[in-house]
Design a protein around this nucleic acid. Structure first.
Lengths: 171, 171
DNA sequence: AACAATTACGTCTCGCGTAAGCATG
DNA sequence: CATGCTTACGCGAGACGTAATTGTT
């Protein structure tokens, strides 16, 4: 049972179809199908009944999904925490610099910024690899062909799976 | 950031050493090293300071780890839920059987059981919301139907993973 | 010397894409 | 017939083991 599998489940449930989930996750529908199947295989029962042409949560699936949502939220929050911890460093640096100036007005600004950050905590559809071009928001109205290669802040880039489109086939 | 990476982190922290973690996870120490490095690479800062011969959580690592623990607990609970859901079948069957007898005393028992379950779930702190899926609130709850490949939980055992030992080497 | 962690290198698993096969509305 | 899920097949990235290297007690 992996985190990615839960992400897939969530995508399917909230999108309503495998295809939509695939779109949202920037994967192919077969990948989604595989993932979910593996998850079901792992836990030992079906999560969605495919009999109805539109996938629908089974009774057990319903319960499982509720719990899964909680786990996903924790993960999401963990990611946010990580990002905050990264920003902490520079924040404290600029604070040190500012300390030589009269502080009183600055403190006000700071608290405002803090509030901003607090609200900025984005919702759910954090993408897995890195900050992709995917829009924030659960509205599910967007189709997105290309997932903007935004070269990250550092030179990391650790070879994420770029968009599908296998170059060559052989058959 | 994957679930497995968090597992590795947790293993290292609670075992105190990479080697111990490797042992616990039935992996090699290099695998553990790789996993953690990838995690650190992913989140952008070091979790453990390796300078001290015995790995020690960094300041940020401390914070991250606390949050990670929460996520891991959710995952663990999710797994438990899944297992319960598999066993759930027989439970509702016996309820159906009992339904032919006078119900009044039985209902009392049920609510007691429900309470038991509720307490049982509170092993992990901060369990709010629904009970772990067993026993829905009212008697009219739900009648499970098919939804399951009846082939139960016997044949799963996905993670046997005793010490692997690659068969062949070549060098 | 014994132990612990990093790392270079090689192998293999598995994630996922393409395409074809079914099923449903 | 259009739409959506599944399945067969294959490729490549990533996971991981072995072993050599370096640092610690």
């Amino acid at each position: 049972m992996t985190y990615e599998q839960l992400l897939v489940l969530h995508a399917i449930v909230s999108e309503g179809t495998f295809r939509g989930a695939a779109e949202r996750l920037h994967k192919s529908q077969s990948a989604v199908s595989h993932m979910l199947k593996k998850l079901e295989d792992d836990i030992g029962f079906l999560l969605l009944s495919r009999e109805a042409y539109r996938p629908k949560l089974t009774a057990k699936g319903e319960v499982f999904y509720r719990q899964a949502t909680r786990a996903l939220e924790q993960m999401q929050q963990l990611r946010t925490t990580a990002r905050n911890l990264n920003a902490k460093h520079e924040a404290s640096v600029s604070l040190a610099v500012t300390a030589t100036y009269p502080l009183t007005p600055v403190l006000n600004v700071i608290s405002q910024v803090k509030n901003n950050i607090r609200q900025q905590t984005s919702i759910f559809p954090g993408n897995h690899g890195r900050p992709t071009g995917a829009v924030t928001g659960t509205t599910g109205g967007y189709h997105h062909r290309d997932d903007g290669r935004g070269a990250g802040r550092s030179g990391r880039s650790h070879s994420v799976c770029q968009h599908h489109h296998y170059a060559g086939r052989a058959s």
